[in-house]
Nucleic acid binder design. Structure first.
Length: 847
DNA sequence: GCAAGGTC
């Protein structure tokens, strides 16, 4: 009998397999190269069985609309609230369903070891759906089990194995509902907003005007802070500035008024007038207190990201990439966790021993091993993964750049959690001048403790004079000072992470993605000290939602949906009912938004320029013969003011007019898309958006156009089938004479052959090469550089056979370091002509 | 081309 067990990720499959097999197992790689299968023999329900343990990589499936809704032009966004959806493979490269099916074929028992959260419960059912039909008893749910574990410790894993339960359908359904809501709501609003605003404004500078239940509240936090700054009214306040002078040492020091500051000038002057004649202050109290600055709790993801942003200047998304590298290379434990408490059996000694090798903190690790280690503070156990700790020693030489900086932080943080608290004494001296009280405070470190590892957290030493109760101190001066309150500053990335966590926006794994999204979409800009400053676009979006339906950008919107989802998870509400109910609310919100979009639009009008006011005249429209404008800000596009039509353009490279040449199909003037100095694609802006032939795709240019006679289409310019990709056609590019190149019309093929720079003219002749049957080139050489005899400059030659021309192919192969044995027979046309007779060429795609 | 959630 075979028991198949599935974990959520390869690393966990390995850890769990090691524990359950008592480290006696065989491992092999799965066919998708991502997952391994670990096998051992043992007992299961009193049977002698063979265990097979493997994993998925997160979700197996993801939700999307059926293909017919992919076309933004043909779908009204409101249809997305009811349009049919389908589950498709989350990561097609991994071929996860096929992999699972293969490993599950004929298996007797299935044990699910997915993470013990709702997403994990959902993945359980994705796994079941993938394998159920190939199990030994496909229709017997009694052979499917769920392991419930809260940590990856031997005790917990073995206990889970001995107490197998069943997967929880309700929890899984709550995730299905979440997926469907996010998809429908996010896509409907995003498509509507994008179409509406991009169709009106030319300088939004973003490809997408997106909406999402996490990204939008995230943006809203940043805009709220900006609003607080903008609406801040400074207030003037006054306070007594008192300097005292130690009579013996002559040392002068400032003392703080117990009333701090007051916003009433007259009242402050009243006190001032009362005190100004005084010459001395009386020490009324001297208080020496020992204080502690507590060692940090164990590190979880969010805290690591905050520290990486604030202390190391790394964006959260970058910090996570670095952390994942450290993890896969075995330097740190799993970096996505909410838990801040170490497992009961965590082996501190082992980690400390590893770190004694460090030249920088080795002595501290040794000191902790020598009996000076203290128990870590108790944090929170979320039951997901242990806190982030180093798992092996690394030196700065082993880890370049940011890998080292993050590893250093994680290691120092770990050492800090088991180091002694920082202790310092605080001396507070209280004075009285008449009836007003003043004080000053000195600080002195007794023991650095854990702050030894993080000097920037150490206590700043502050000296104050040594005074005794009852002593009298001379007054240096008493003044009234006037100051103003200051506005808050823009939100730092680190503060934003804190706000998101507090409000339940995103998860440890997705918080960095949401922050990255609002940066990439150009809603906020990252400025000094990693502060997030909203752009015009970010501001008008949030202010627009606030005008139309403030709930759309409030964090509570997410939590209210979560509450509904909780009901499903707890089995208190029916999945379909909740989904239907919540979708209806959002559909109504969507329609209300559409009806009132002018409220948001008026804000856009103030900030952005209309399409017609932006851009520069570019080329003539084939419909009205008027000039269309090129809108340069993202997304680059052409706009015909008269016809009110927008034409998408290639997004890479520059666009210029192609010698006022016209497309024979629609009269639109042709353009050239220059991707780099050697790669130019002519295209018709109309055909680019509305392909004229079945074999042409949206986004294709002239070299992919099968027009039978147009001089720009491949029928007129193709020389042969591409010898590099065997897929496309080699096309003569004569768009920028006197430079000539041969390129492949397969977008995925990178081939570029640069023809000799001695040429001044080249086009494709009607003659075919006698030798290889490829179309010949009519060429003209520069009169001073011609390789032809008798100073002759023009000729007809074959690229593949002519000695002067085929050099360029050899150069290409040399440059690309290709060892293709160039065989011109490969290019032989199947209808080889007899004796080089002129004939009209027709290039077939299947050349 | 769109969301958010897993993870590689």
């Amino acid at each position: 009998m075979i028991v198949l067990m599935i974990a959520e990720k390869p690393s966990l499959a390995q850890s769990i397999a090691k524990i359950l097999s008592n480290n006696d197992l065989q491992s092999r790689k799965g066919f998708n190269n991502a997952c391994s299968i670990h096998e051992w023999s043992g007992k299961f329900m009193n049977y002698q069985v063979r265990y097979k343990m493997t994993s998925v990589c997160g979700h197996v499936m993801s939700l999307d609309f059926v293909p017919k809704y992919n076309n933004w032009d043909k779908t009204d966004p409101s249809e997305l609230f009811s349009g049919e959806t389908l589950k498709k493979e989350a990561t097609p490269n991994l071929k996860m369903p096929a992999f699972l099916e293969k490993e599950a074929r004929g298996v007797d028992y299935l044990v699910l070891w997915l993470d013990c959260d709702r997403e994990g419960e959902n993945i359980c059912f994705e796994v079941i759906d993938s394998v159920k039909h190939v199990l030994a008893k496909p229709n017997d749910n009694r052979n499917i089990f769920r392991a419930h574990f809260s940590s990856i410790t031997e005790q917990d894993i073995k206990r889970a194995m001995n107490n197998l339960g069943k997967p929880n359908k309700n929890e899984s359904l709550s995730v299905d509902a979440r997926q469907e809501l996010d998809l429908r709501i996010g896509c409907a609003f995003t498509r509507y907003q994008t179409r509406f605003f991009q169709g009106k404004y030319g300088d939004l500078d973003c490809n997408l005007v997106s909406y999402g239940p996490c990204q939008t509240p995230t943006l809203s936090f940043c805009v709220d802070r900006m609003d607080k700054i903008k609406s801040f009214k400074p207030e003037t306040y006054w306070y007594l500035d008192v300097e005292l002078q130690h009579s013996k040492t002559g040392q002068s020091f400032n003392v703080k008024w117990s009333r701090n500051h007051l916003f009433d000038k007259d009242v402050v002057y009243m006190f001032y007038n009362d005190l100004k004649q005084s010459s001395s202050a009386l020490v009324t109290n001297v208080n020496l207190q020992e204080k502690t600055k507590q060692r940090p709790i164990a590190l979880n993801t969010v805290e690591m990201l905050r520290a990486a942003s604030a202390g190391l200047g790394m964006s959260p998304i970058h910090a996570m990439q670095i952390a994942e590298k450290l993890y896969t290379q075995g330097y740190i434990s799993y970096p996505r966790t909410e838990t801040t408490t170490y497992a009961a059996n965590f082996n501190f000694k082992e980690v400390l021993v590893q770190q004694t090798k460090s030249s920088s903190w080795g002595s501290i690790a040794q000191d902790l091993l020598n009996g000076n280690m203290v128990n870590p503070r108790k944090g929170v156990d979320q039951g997901d993964h242990p806190p982030i700790t180093p798992t092996s020693f690394a030196s700065p030489e082993q880890l370049p750049g940011d890998l080292w900086r993050l590893y250093e932080f994680i290691t120092k943080h770990f050492l800090a959690t088991v180091s002694r608290d920082c202790k310092y004494e605080e001396l507070t001296i209280t004075f009285k001048i008449k009836s007003e009280e003043f004080s000053c405070c000195g600080k002195n470190t007794i023991e650095n403790g854990w702050t030894e590892l993080m000097p920037w957290k150490q206590i700043d030493f502050k000296e104050i004079p040594n005074l005794k109760k009852g002593e009298s101190v001379q007054i240096g001066h008493i003044k009234v000072l006037e100051k103003q309150t200051n506005p808050p500053d823009y939100l730092t990335e680190s503060e934003l992470i804190g706000l998101m966590e507090k409000n339940g926006i995103g998860t440890d794994a997705s918080i960095p993605v949401h922050i990255n999204n609002i940066c990439e979409r150009n809603y906020v800009k990252l400025e000094r000290d990693r502060r997030l400053v909203p752009t015009n676009l970010g501001v008008v979006l949030v202010h627009g939602y606030q005008r139309i339906d403030p709930e759309l950008c409030l964090p509570k919107m997410r939590s209210q949906v979560e509450e509904q989802l909780n009901l499903i998870a707890l089995g208190k509400a029916n999945y379909r009912d909740v989904l239907k109910h919540t979708l209806r609310i959002f559909e109504q919100k969507f329609h209300f938004f559409v009806q009132n979009v002018s409220l948001m639009d008026s804000l856009f009008e103030d900030s952005f320029s209309s399409l017609s006011a932006t851009g520069k005249p570019m080329s003539r429209c084939g419909k009205c013969r008027r000039f269309m404008k090129l809108v340069l800000s993202k997304p680059q596009r052409l706009y015909c003011e008269y016809c009110k039509d927008t034409y998408n353009l290639p997004q890479n490279g520059t666009i210029k007019l192609y010698r006022e040449l016209k497309c024979p199909l629609d009269d639109f003037e042709l353009l050239i898309n220059s991707i780099n100095k050697n790669l130019n694609h002519p295209f018709c802006p109309y055909c680019f958006n509305n392909p004229p032939f079945d074999d042409m795709k949206k986004g294709d240019g002239c070299i992919n156009c099968s027009h039978p006679t147009c001089t720009h289409a491949f029928n007129s310019n193709a020389l042969s089938k591409c010898f590099e990709c065997q897929n496309g056609l080699l096309i003569l590019d004569s768009t920028t004479p006197p430079k000539f190149r041969v390129i492949c019309n397969n977008k995925l093929c990178k081939l570029i052959i640069i023809l000799p720079d001695t040429l001044i003219k080249a086009d494709v002749s009607d003659d075919l090469c006698e030798n290889c049957d490829a179309p010949m080139l009519n060429i003209v050489y520069h009169k001073d550089k011609t390789p032809l005899e008798n100073g002759q400059t023009s000729t007809t030659a074959c690229l593949f056979c002519d000695n002067n021309l085929k050099v360029s192919i050899e150069n290409y192969l040399k440059l690309a370091n290709k060892k293709i044995n160039f065989d011109r027979k490969k290019f032989t046309h199947k209808h080889k002509s007899a004796g080089g007779r002129r004939k009209k060429r027709v290039v077939h795609k299947n050349w």
